[in-house]
Nucleic acid binder design. Structure first.
Ligand code: MN
Ligand code: MN
Ligand code: ZN
Ligand code: ZN
Lengths: 136, 136
DNA sequence: CTATTGATGCAACTCAGTTGCATGGCCATT
DNA sequence: AATGGCCATGCAACTGAGTTGCATCAATAG
């Protein structure tokens, strides 16, 4: 496990450190997008400074190891990047959790020609609803 | 103009006040989504308290007069609600402005059957690119 | 093993947004 | 037109996310 994480960091030109290994493990094994607070809580070593965690997240995002997820709430969410393809974010209106899911080719909106002059480069879809746990 | 704004407020069961009229005018005449700071700057009466403005925005959003736009940046954006239909948000990667635009029926992603158990109720699309002003 | 570079920790700060409370203005009733 | 209830407003103080500067320490190259 840890050997695999070491490799991921090296492949992205990131120095291997205990903090980074832990943070990466938390993100790589989570099914949902996590906030700074969430991650901090899940770290086995609870003495990691908050600033260090922010900087770690920035470094990971810069190297495309993770990505920041647009959220409705006030604080940022981060998720491990599975693929670079267009994907969707499923936001559960029950538990507020955000699932980062692949989006079938067929369900992708074709970049529409909006009002003339708007040039679309990338797009992403946000789905609201209820996750398995919250399904009424 | 102002008579029209008064009507809109009344139709949404909101008491008519000078602050609300001004804030509504700013939002109703803007082509792009605005932050608390943006709105504050555009108010003719610059003595409006920031808390009052926040509460005004909450009241408007609660009554569906406006809606909060999911943004990448740290602060919230608000836009006048044109229709209740699914629509897209165009985010200019040049000037950072967010345009709230209708989305052609054909370009709407069909709620995909994700992993079993996820129930989709609503969806919205985010488009990144360059607006007319920033078009290279 | 040593040197360099960058990762970490700590303190102080900025900024968005919130809460409690007192005052004042909108509007319904008379 | 005057009265009064209710809620919109303003002010002050607070919370919480995220940032910046700087000193120290640890990961890796030589
Ligand atoms: Mn994602
Ligand atoms: Mn919108
Ligand atoms: Zn849920
Ligand atoms: Zn632009």
């Amino acid at each position: 496990m840890e050997a695999r994480l070491r490799d991921i960091l090296k492949e992205h030109d990131l120095k291997v450190t205990p903090v980074r290994l832990q943070v990466l493990e938390v993100l790589a094994t989570s099914e949902v997008a996590l906030s700074h607070h969430d991650i901090s809580n899940r770290l086995s070593d609870d003495s990691v400074d908050k600033v260090t965690l922010y900087r770690t997240l920035h470094a990971f995002a810069e190297r495309q190891l993770i990505h920041k997820v647009p959220s409705d709430g006030p604080n940022g969410l981060y998720a491990f990047r599975l693929s670079h393809d267009a994907h969707a974010h499923f936001i559960c209106d029950g538990c507020e959790r955000v699932y980062c899911t692949p989006l079938p080719e067929a369900a992708r909106p074709v970049a529409p020609t909006l009002t003339a002059g708007f040039q679309v480069t990338t797009q992403d879809v946000r789905l609201h609803g209820y996750c398995p746990d919250c399904h009424a």
